[in-house]
Design a protein around this nucleic acid. Structure first.
Lengths: 168, 168
DNA sequence: CGCGATTATCTTGACGTCAAGATAGGCGCC
DNA sequence: GGCGCCTATCTTGACGTCAAGATAATCGCG
């Protein structure tokens, strides 16, 4: 019995004509995402980051040497718009964690690169972050984790099929 | 193979010391929440609402007659802060969908009530919303839905146990 | 080789959200 | 009954996000 069950029971009483089973599943995904996000924010804040800035630094870090990608490349893996990305890069550049470099091969484009400081920050943060995630998931048995992950993966494929785009 | 698999593979190459299994599960929940939210926003917008305003109206509607709750009651079922709620109510009041009434039993408190117009809007919107949700979930087999919902419910209980509060 | 179409990034303006603190009404001990 | 404490709601200021459009550089057809 979670909050979603209460919500569904209320709808069933008020609008018995509606099939609210999908609402339950979608509501649970949303609420879990929210709880998990709040839990992870604290770790980011402890390292001077937000979920937004962590996202950019982590994408650059895991891309491997030379830890630099164009804004367009970053957009491809992040679920945000171009304006949002510009804003994120501005903040990180101001903080000295990334720098904008000219792209020698295309004057329209730019390369966003981790600075030395940025590398140190993201490497320390991601280590703590993984520990936080492990803690956030410890309430679920090993079996449930595997089963849940498999089902989520199958569902996510509906929106992000193969290697192409993930439009909604 | 979704985007999350790509991300995990990159981390495994760059930081083989980290156990990224939790990151996969949490990342999939986040991305699904995002995709689903984007899909549902369009329905809200078609009825002049946002996810935020829908949330308030729906909570009042499903609470049953007389379709009125105090801000404190609303906060109990919504995952937002009091300042955010004040802002949402201000917008809805300006749009004529809810109204603030004095609480005869407690001068500190207020009652937020659906107006006639607000009732009509939310009733029409929720009907369309349920149809949208049914569409967003149709990529998943009936069996998978049931299994996924059961696992999500078990996981959500970690954060929202019983009838008490759901702090993170 | 020049100019229109395309691509890459940034700008603008409007919202939604949060944390922290301010305001204001009620409650209870003395 | 008065005064300090608690509770309910609102205010403030800083961010993050989006949609739509602006700017700037490259591409490609004639």
């Amino acid at each position: 019995m979670d909050r979603v069950d209460d919500i569904l029971a209320q709808w069933h009483r008020e609008r018995p004509d509606l099939d609210v089973a999908p609402m339950g599943l979608i509501g649970r995904i949303n609420r879990l995402s929210h709880h998990l996000g709040r839990g992870m924010e604290k770790t980011f804040a402890a390292h001077g980051l937000t979920a937004a800035s962590f996202d950019v630094l982590a994408t650059l870090r895991r891309s491997g040497r030379p830890y630099s990608l164009s804004p367009g490349d970053l957009l491809g893996t992040m679920m945000i718009t171009s304006g949002t990305l510009t804003n994120r890069i501005d903040q990180l550049e101001k903080a000295g964690l990334v720098e904008r470099r000219q792209n020698p091969e295309d004057g329209r484009s730019v390369l966003i690169a981790l600075t030395e400081k940025g590398f140190a920050v993201i490497d320390a943060t991601v280590t703590a972050h993984v520990a936080t995630q492990a803690r956030l998931i410890e309430g679920l048995s090993k079996q449930d984790r595997v089963a849940l992950d498999a089902l989520l993966s199958r569902y996510l494929k509906v929106f992000e099929s193969g290697t192409s785009e993930g439009k909604s």
